[in-house]
Amino acid sequence: MSALTLAVPSKGRLKEQTEEFFRDAGYAIVPMGGVRGYLARIPALPEIELRLLSASEIASGVIAGDIHCGISGEDLLREQAGDLERVAHLLAPLGFGRADLVVAAPASWLDVETMADVDDVAARMEVATGRKLRVATKYVRSTRRFFTEEGVGHYRIVESAGATEGAPMAGVADLVVDITTTGATLKANGLKILSDGVILRSQAQLVASLEAEWTDAGLRALKALVSAFEQRAGLHTTRFEEFVAALNHTRA
């Protein structure tokens, strides 16, 4: 492993916004090209090994400690790690890639505004029909955690592969847990967000792994990167020192 491996999104809007963010901080991301299309470099920071991965792979790589740090969505990080704070440290919210992870119910359910209503309806549904309320989502862990915290039982998760928001209309689920930016897609599918149904207000994060092997050179390189972000991109974070403290704690 290099002193510092940094993974950045390899496709879509998140890739463009990440490149823009680095450009604002004064760094150009240059792909290596050819067969090694998954590698890139920042000429001004030669000690950093850059990898191009999907946001989901970045989240799992940081959690497993295969890469030192990366840029990925907080929603993906929290979904993939049972207890994110134990394995990784969010160094800085980057101000882009915003999306809310929300619980949405059919708009026709006029009596359902809150998670407490969901529990009431779910309990009643089980008594009346013998089946549990179905919740379609790709965010299985986050859903389970939130429903437990909110005191909702009597439900079953239906894991959805894609187009989660269509599940209630298709008759395969009653509620959905999904990410949304404006709520327009949910609305177009006849759904409404519950008043206390925001699980997470997510955005892209610079995240560092507590599970990876860190060297002093790696930490110095990360500190330089964070300082550059602070000075040039107007990012405010004091979390680098907290990360080092957490890392020392993990090693002890």
């Binding site: 059919p106 026709s108 359910w109 006029l110 309806v121 209309m169 009653d174």
Partner: peptide, 11 residues
């Protein structure tokens, strides 16, 4: 429900 322009779902 009509005025919301949606179909009743499940209930």
């Amino acid at each position: 429900i009509d005025s919301l322009g949606v179909e009743p779902v499940a209930r």
